Computed example of a mutant assay.
Amino acid sequence: MGYSDVVFPRGSKFLVTGGAGFIGSNLCEALLKLGYRVRCLDNLSNGDYENIKPFIKNTNFEFINGTITDYEVCNHACKGIDYVLHQAAWGSVPRSIEMPLYYEEVNIKGTVNMMEAAVKNNVKKFVYASSSSVYGDSIALPKVEGIEGNVLSPYALTKKVNEEYGKIYSDIYGLQTIGLRYFNVFGRRQNPNGAYAAVIPKFIINLLNNKTLVINGDGKQSRDFTYIENVIEANIKAAASSSNITGEAFNIACGNRESLNEIFALLKSELMTDIAPIYGDDRIGDVKHSHADISKAKLLLNYSPDWDFQTGILETIKWYKGLLYEEN
Rank of each mutant, 00 (worst) to 15 (best):
V112Y: 01
S153Y: 00
D48T: 04
P100M: 07
S96W: 00
G110P: 12
N122G: 14
P54M: 04
N113Q: 04
A140K: 14
S132M: 10
I56V: 13
M114V: 09
A89V: 00
L101C: 07
S133G: 10
L41N: 08
D137Q: 09
Y128M: 11
Q87C: 08
V127D: 08
K143N: 13
N75H: 14
S45E: 06
N121G: 12
P54W: 01
V73H: 11
N122M: 11
V134D: 07
L44F: 14
M115E: 02
G47S: 04
I168L: 15
Y71F: 15
V112M: 03
A129N: 04
C78V: 13
Y102I: 05
N46I: 01
G91S: 06
M115W: 03
S92H: 01
D42P: 02
E98N: 02
N150A: 13
C78S: 15
D48Q: 07
H76T: 15
G66K: 13
H86A: 09
W90P: 00
K53H: 01
L157R: 00
Y169E: 08
D42G: 01
Y135G: 14
T59D: 15
D42C: 02
N75Y: 14
C74W: 09
A88V: 04
L44W: 03
M115R: 01
V119D: 02
K124W: 09
N162I: 01
I56Y: 07
L141P: 06
P142E: 13
N65A: 11
F55E: 05
I139G: 08
K57R: 15
N75V: 13
W90A: 00
M99L: 07
Y135C: 15
E72G: 14
S138Y: 04
V112C: 02
Y128R: 10
N121I: 11
S45D: 04
L44Y: 05
S170H: 08
S96R: 00
F55G: 09
Y155L: 00
I168P: 06
K125G: 14
N51D: 03
I168D: 12
T59N: 11
N75L: 15
L152S: 11
G136Q: 05
L41K: 08
A118N: 07
L157T: 00
G47A: 04
L44V: 03
G146L: 06
S133P: 05
S131I: 01
K109T: 09
S153H: 02
V151A: 10
I97S: 10
I81R: 13
E116C: 03
Y49P: 01
L101A: 12
N43I: 05
Y155G: 00
S132G: 11
Y49K: 06
N121T: 11
R95H: 04
F55Q: 05
Y135V: 13
Y102K: 09
V123L: 08
V123N: 06
D82Y: 15
L85A: 06
V112G: 02
E50W: 03
V127P: 05
S130P: 11
S45I: 03
I81K: 14
S170K: 05
V73F: 08
W90I: 00
F126D: 04
D70W: 07
I81W: 14
